[in-house]
Write a protein that binds this DNA or RNA. Structure first.
Length: 283
DNA sequence: ACTTACACCTGCCAGC
DNA sequence: TGCTGGCAGGTGTAAG
């Protein structure tokens, strides 16, 4: 479910409430809550202080006063909520991290709070990992996202230009550019007026540049709106929905008129997922 | 070295 | 009412 804007919304919420806090207890409630490649159990973070909450693309990690980091990926349906330990537990609660000394709580109560990892489909995970130059093991192969200082627009354009895959598949490839998922890929291609199935090598560098900058622009607007929520799946750390779905131009709008030319938006099955586009604007 | 197909899950909704 | 198939925001992997 969550793409870069949703993950960033969660990251910013966590940063606000949990940086500086010490983890006093940790528990998993589902066998897949901890990634199999985790170097230690979740209990190993007990006693650690949270120094920062970092993100690259759709990957989040807690920087701790330890050699290792605690990585979190939300998969298709994961949530991280910050709640008082006494508040009702969600059906799909997979793990928690109880905080010993948090200064602020979302409810402004003096109650102890905890970070809850909730995940209906169980594609998300937590993992205790070693780091190299501050980057955890499972994030090492993920490309810079467009909001990082190190993001090299020219390098990404020339990489894409050499590819033989469809442009949509390429921008979904987290090893080339990270953070873009199915929603923002469709939105970026609509903004750039490009059909999702065009082969990268057949595009001009200017066209490729336009897709990449459109992806960054649409994700920036979505962050401002608190992300895209269609249902109960995406929530920020306070359990609130984002409202960017009303600003989407094509995603989830099959059969509705294109806002530029009024042609009806089409949905096609492509690369094992749905693609939404305007058949007139995007040839 | 790339690219693609598929597996990994649970739940909801439309249609019969 | 209850079944079935299709669909859902992602990623790692195996095989071509």
């Amino acid at each position: 479910m969550p793409e870069l804007p949703e993950v960033e919304t969660v990251r910013a919420g966590l940063e606000r409430y949990v940086v500086g806090a010490k983890i006093s207890a940790a528990q998993t409630f589902h066998p897949r809550a901890l990634k199999t490649t985790s170097i230690a159990t979740l209990k190993s973070v007990i006693g650690a202080k949270i120094i920062a909450v970092n993100r690259r693309g759709k990957f989040l990690w807690f920087e701790l006063d330890r050699e290792f980091a605690l990585v979190a990926h939300l998969g298709m349906s994961g949530q991280l909520l910050v709640q008082p330990i006494t508040s009702p537990k969600h059906l799909h609660l997979r793990a928690n991290l109880v905080l010993g000394n948090s200064l602020i709580s979302p409810k402004k109560s003096r109650e102890k709070i905890e970070i809850r990892f909730i995940d209906q489909r169980t594609f998300g995970w937590l993992s205790v990992e070693e780091q190299s130059n501050g980057i955890p093991t499972s994030v090492a192969h993920i490309a810079y996202d467009p909001f990082e200082h190190e993001f090299d627009l020219k390098a990404v354009i020339s990489d894409l230009k050499r590819r033989k895959s469809a442009i949509k598949s390429a921008i979904l490839n987290q090893g080339i550019i990270s953070g873009i998922g199915n929603i923002y890929a469709d939105e970026a291609l609509w903004r750039a007026r490009l059909h999702p199935e065009i082969i990268c090598g057949d595009l001009t560098e200017d066209e490729i540049k336009k897709v990449v900058l459109s992806a960054k622009a649409v994700m920036k607007s979505a962050i401002k709106a608190g992300g895209t929520s269609f249902d109960e799946q995406y929530k920020n750390v306070n359990g609130e929905s984002g409202y960017f779905s009303r600003s989407l131009s094509v995603y989830g709008r099959e059969g509705e008129p294109c806002s530029r030319c009024a042609t009806l938006v089409r949905r096609i099955a492509f690369a094992n997922r749905s693609s939404h586009f305007c058949p007139r604007c995007q040839r």
